[in-house]
Amino acid sequence: MIELTTSTDTPSQPPKGGKICIVGGGFMGCVIATMYARHGYQVVLHDPDQAALDSFAERARPIAATYAAEADVEEILGRVTGEPELAAAVSGAFLVHEAVPENLELKQTVFATLDRLCPPDVVLATNTSSLLISDIASKVTHRTRVLGIHYITPAHIVPAVEIIRVEETPDQLVSFARAFVASIDHVGVVCPERPGFLINKIQFAMLTEIYRLVDEGLATREDIDAAVRLSIGPRLALWGPLLTEDLIVSKKTALAVTDSLYHQTGDENFKGRTALRELVDRGDLGAMTGQGWYGFDGAYGDTVEKRDRQLRDLLEWLRDRDGVGELNPR
């Protein structure tokens, strides 16, 4: 039986310029190391494959170049040191971030070794995109210092970061993770461990339905992408799904649509959920009533005017930008 040891020494704030060890010198390890170095941390990149360490600078240079207006590329790369020996790599680190391939046995072995090598106050994070944190940490003694810090590709551009907690994760560690993520100009979104976590669970709910449309030949790839890019996408980019609903539709209508889809398809995923029904029952129908998922101050007409201006400006920017044309997909 593994004893769960709780560390009470987790710092509330990451030490400025402190040492971080990245375990795994592949694609994500390279990106994460570069990001941390960009924000002033001293980074040791560990990989038993010396070739991965030797090629780091070449692979990291284009990533660091995205910050060229703010910092010198060579200065960023100079904060990253390669180290093939794990014990030496983790020595003195306040955070060890694992980014090895998505293989459970490999990650379990890495974390068991890290648990043995690192003092209990060293935070151990995984960048897993699909494996459960509790499974990864199943062989760890000091399990309360383990959590997920999962970046979304391209991680140096996309600001949202999943902070994944398990039942044993103390609030102090979550607060530390939020502060650390903020220190690299990213935004932490906290979620409990569950299949898909938060972002992939939302993303693949949409993609699964899109795959079905393609399989059934109901729409072309161009029409599907245009439908999302020119309707759902801009609204979600501006406001997110729940605030979007508050701004554009009555909760009564939203509930009626979900119930209608459920009755037509029998798919439980379309069944109106408890939280939505409770809002309808209370009369909290969105911006039009001053309260929905969010509360709103001021006149509804003013809110609508601001909503429309923001969406119009973004759509005009998208038309001028022509992101699809720039990528020139075939």
Rank of each mutant, 00 (worst) to 15 (best):
L132Y: 02
L311H: 14
D49K: 12
L117I: 02
R221D: 09
G148S: 01
Q203F: 06
I164G: 07
G325E: 13
G26N: 07
A88G: 05
T81C: 07
G26E: 06
G17N: 13
T244Q: 13
H46W: 06
A57I: 01
P234M: 01
R194T: 07
Q264G: 01
T81W: 05
V146K: 08
A287S: 09
R312H: 03
G196N: 10
Q310I: 00
Q291I: 00
D215W: 02
L261H: 03
I157P: 02
C118P: 03
V257A: 14
A64F: 07
L276T: 04
F180T: 06
V43P: 10
A89E: 08
L106V: 10
R79P: 02
E85W: 05
D313V: 01
R143A: 14
I22Q: 15
T126L: 05
I136S: 04
S12L: 13
L261V: 00
L117E: 07
R307H: 12
R178K: 15
G24W: 03
A177P: 02
A177H: 14
G40M: 05
V214K: 13
L213D: 08
H150E: 04
L247E: 12
G18M: 09
V190K: 12
K107W: 06
T126A: 11
V122Y: 13
Y36K: 03
A299L: 08
T66R: 09
T144Y: 10
E168W: 08
P84D: 10
G18C: 06
E216R: 14
E74C: 01
P192S: 08
Q291D: 06
V122M: 09
D223G: 04
H186C: 07
I232C: 07
G298P: 01
G25P: 03
Q13I: 01
F27A: 02
